[in-house]
Amino acid sequence: MEKEITITVYGADQICASCVNAPGSKDTYEWLQAAIARKYGDANIHYTYVDIFSPPEDEKIQDLARRVADDEFFYPLVLVDDEIAGEGNPRLKTIYSKLEEKGLQPKM
């Protein structure tokens, strides 16, 4: 069985002020799931969405959510196994590259 990969999207309902004309965080979260499923099939990927203004009770997640809310990063911020793969208006090519570094192969 292949190792589970975690994709986490940090965002908010409000669109990032620096990301005018970019899709919202939840739209990006849903778009990523669909795009990744098309390319990699039913790979062992776990998706998580974190609202930066009401993160879960996990210190590590709360710290990163606070950093995003404090404008250290643009949102949506996309992580692949805790590595930043994109922010603001993330690019699929970069995210795919991170997934393939983790051993994921496109479906035939």
Rank of each mutant, 00 (worst) to 15 (best):
E100H: 02
M1P: 06
L32V: 02
E87C: 14
N21M: 15
D13I: 06
P23H: 10
L64A: 02
A35Q: 01
I45S: 13
E4Y: 08
R67W: 10
V9H: 06
G88K: 09
T48Y: 14
N44V: 04
N21Y: 14
K98E: 06
P90M: 01
R38M: 06
F53V: 02
A69S: 08
V50W: 03
T28C: 09
E72A: 11
A65Q: 08
M1D: 09
L79Q: 14
P23F: 11
R66A: 15
Y75I: 11
S54H: 07
V80M: 12
D71L: 13
K102G: 05
L104I: 15
D82L: 01
Q33Y: 07
G88A: 02
F73A: 15
K93A: 14
C16G: 10
E87N: 15
A12L: 11
D63V: 10
A34Y: 08
T94C: 15
C16W: 09
Q14A: 12
D58P: 03
R66K: 08
I15V: 09
L104A: 14
R67D: 01
Y40N: 13
Y96F: 07
C16Q: 04
K3S: 11
G88Q: 01
H46A: 12
Q62I: 13
E83C: 08
D27P: 02
P90W: 00
E30V: 14
A22V: 00
Q62S: 07
C19I: 10
G86R: 05
V78K: 10
G103H: 05
I95F: 00
Y10A: 06
A85L: 09
A12F: 05
L32I: 03
Q33K: 09
T48R: 15
T48D: 14
D51S: 06
A17Q: 06
E72H: 05
A37K: 12
V78M: 01
L64W: 02
M108F: 08
K107Y: 03
T94A: 15
P106M: 13
E2W: 11
E83Y: 08
I5G: 01
F74Q: 13
L92S: 12
V20L: 02
Y10M: 04
T8F: 01
D82R: 09
I36V: 13
V80T: 03
T8G: 10
V20C: 06
Q62V: 12
V80I: 09
I45A: 10
D82T: 07
L32G: 01
V80P: 12
Y40K: 07
Y40A: 13
N44P: 09
I45M: 11
V9Y: 04
D71A: 15
D27M: 11
I36K: 12
K98D: 03
A35F: 05
E57G: 14
K3P: 04
V78D: 07
L77E: 02
N89M: 10
E30D: 05
G41S: 03
E83F: 03
I84D: 00
A85K: 03
H46E: 08
D82F: 04
E100W: 01
A22Q: 00
D27I: 15
C19L: 10
A43H: 02
M108P: 09
Y40T: 12
I95H: 00
A34F: 11
E72F: 07
C16E: 00
D58G: 03
A22S: 08
R66S: 13
I5E: 01
T8K: 06
I15H: 05
D51A: 10
I95K: 02
P56S: 08
T28Y: 01
I36P: 04
A65E: 02
L99A: 10
E4L: 06
I5Y: 01
T94V: 15
